[in-house]
């Protein structure tokens, strides 16, 4: 029995369940937002934003939840490693994809209010 027991469900819904519920719902919402962003955003560069950022928060929430509910050295180190690598590789992948998209003109210029890369002084678009 936990000392703090909310128990407003018939299946023993305690504080740990509440934390899990909130974090899982947050992650699910982030996944949903990423999917919607992929469908709605107009060009590759905008979709990259939707693809990179919400997932990081979703994954941090989920992994933190797993690590906290099963607190041990092995779990926490693995959780730290997962977040570290996802946080390190996702921006790198986004950068590679974004650069490829820009160099192959896979973006809409009509929705850019400022563009300082096309008009930079030594504008050699290395291919």
């Amino acid at each position: 029995m936990n000392p703090i027991d909310f128990s407003f469900g018939d299946d023993g819904f305690d504080l740990r369940d509440a934390v899990t519920a909130v974090l899982v719902l947050l992650a699910a919402l982030m996944c949903f937002a990423a999917g919607v962003g992929l469908v709605r955003f107009p060009d590759v560069l905008s979709r990259l934003h939707a693809a990179t950022k919400p997932q990081i928060l979703g994954l941090i929430a989920i992994v933190a939840d797993v690590a906290v509910t099963n607190l041990s050295v092995g779990t926490v180190t693995l959780a730290v490693a997962i977040i570290f690598f996802q946080g390190l590789t996702a921006p790198a992948a986004a950068h590679m994809t974004g650069r490829a998209a820009f160099r192959t003109d896979h973006f809409r210029e009509d929705i850019l209010v400022v563009d300082e890369l096309t008009s930079r002084p030594d504008a050699d678009r290395r291919s």
Partner: peptide
Amino acid sequence: ATAMCAIGAEMAI
């Protein structure tokens, strides 16, 4: 990433 979240959510629950 969605699959990762789903696998993690199953673990958490």
